[in-house]
């Protein structure tokens, strides 16, 4: 491995370099973490602009605690997912985000010939996003972390400060809620007519 290839370093090592004043570490960490944080925030909020604000705020908090970061105690991504979820929850409780998300989801247009044509990839994603918005905050967070961000249950347990069994329970309840919401959506949109 070339000694100057910082992209091969893990987040902890890069954060150490960042706090030591290395500008390359700042760039690599931002490019590595910002898209992940943004995607997670968008899945929780359903709104790109809100997600961008949350991403900027979460990263700002990371930069500020970088000099005091304790190496090896927690993963940087675990900390970031937790901060992102807290910021997103705050916004949702203030009544922002979710309403915008529902407005932003494209509605299936009338007059299309079949359910297959309407339920294309983007529509499915939009439907899931809308269904996610109907879940309680913790269930939504657990489902997003497990099935969209692809994290393992122990990692989710660390992020949500829960036991693994509690995470499994939240995910299971969340999926039941999603299935019910999606089923209701399909019926209301007439997807079962074919």
């Amino acid at each position: 491995m070339p000694f100057d290839d910082l992209t091969l370093l893990d987040d902890d090592a890069l954060l150490l370099l960042y706090s030591a004043g290395d500008p390359a570490a700042a760039r690599i960490l931002t490019e590595r973490l910002a898209p992940r944080v943004h995607a997670h925030a968008w899945r929780l909020l359903g709104d790109a602009a809100e997600a961008e604000d949350v991403t900027q705020e979460a990263l700002l908090r990371l930069w500020k605690i970088a000099p005091d970061w304790r190496q090896g105690e927690a993963k940087v991504t675990t900390w970031l997912y937790r901060v992102t979820a807290n910021l997103a929850t705050d916004r949702l409780r203030r009544g922002r985000g979710r309403g915008v998300a529902l407005d932003a989801i494209p509605e299936p247009e009338d007059g299309q010939p079949s359910a297959e044509a309407r339920m294309q990839e983007a529509d499915r994603a939009a439907a899931l996003q809308e269904a996610l918005a109907t879940l309680p905050d913790r269930q939504r967070q657990a489902v997003v972390l497990r099935h969209l961000d692809g994290l393992a249950n122990p990692d989710i347990a660390a992020i949500m400060d829960l036991g693994v069994e509690a995470v499994e329970s939240l995910v299971a309840r969340g999926k039941r809620g999603l299935a019910a919401a999606l089923s209701g959506m399909k019926e209301s949109l007439g997807y079962n007519d074919d």
Partner: peptide
């Protein structure tokens, strides 16, 4: 479907966040 549907962060936003980090 949802995994690939998350909107990408714009290059301008990424630049702004990098500037903030620096």
């Amino acid at each position: 479907a949802a995994r690939s549907a998350a909107p990408a962060l714009s290059p301008a936003a990424l630049d702004r966040m990098t500037a903030q980090a620096l």
